[in-house]
Amino acid sequence: MKLYDYVLSGNCYKIRLLAAFLKLDYQTEPVDFYPGKQHKNEEFLTINPLGQLPVLRDGDLVIRDAQAILLYLANKYDSERSWWPANNALRVGEVAMWLSFADQITSTASAARLHDMLGYELDVDAARSGANTLFRVLEDHLTDREFDGDDWIAGDCPTIADIACFPYTALCGDGGISLQPFPAIQRWVRRFTALPGFVAMPGINCIK
C-alpha cells in the first residue's frame, strides 16, 4: 500500500493517522506539493486528474480524496468496525454528516493556513470567518456530547469523523485562527492527541 503524501498536508495527515491507529503497513511517496507544485504536473495528473493529495494505491486500486480513503481503509482493515460503525445506520449517518463537515473545515481553515504560511492568494478574512462559524457549530456539538457523557463526535468511541475533523482544526493557529473561544474543541483535541497510536505532524505538538 502506498500513500502519495505531503508532510505539511492535513488531508494526507488524516490517512497517516488512521493508518497509525490501525497499525497498517504502508509506504509513502513524497510529493513536492510546495514549492514544486508536483501535484499539478502531467505525471501526477495521470494518478489523480483533480491534481490533489492524498492518493492511496492499494494493489490495483487507486483512490483519491481524504474522506474516501478513510472510508476505504476503515471498511477494509478495521475488523472491530469501530472507526466506521457500518453496522449502525444512525451512526453511519452521523459520521457521514461530519465527514462532509470536515471538507468545509478544509475549504476555510486550511485555506487560511495556506494563505498565511505559504502565501496563497485568497480572501483570508472570509476563510477565517468561515472557519469560526464552523468551529462554533463543532463547539456547540461537542459541548452537548460532553453533557451526554461522550467524548467523541459521533457515538461513544472515536470514528473517522474525528480523524477527518482533527487536522485542520488542530492546525488552525497556523492560519491565524484561535481555539481560545472553543474550550470544548480544545478538550476534544487534547483527548484526540492522547489516543493510543496517535502520531503528530509539524504544527501540532503533543509532548505529554
Binding site: 505531503y6 508532510v7 505539511l8 513536492d32 510546495y34 509539524p202
Partner: peptide
Amino acid sequence: NTDTGLLHFQQTIFLQDRMILE
C-alpha cells in the same frame, strides 16, 4: 534521498519551528 525526500525533511523541521516562532 530524492530531492523531495530532502525537501520534506527540511519542511518538517521548519514547520515545527514556525509554531514556536509565532
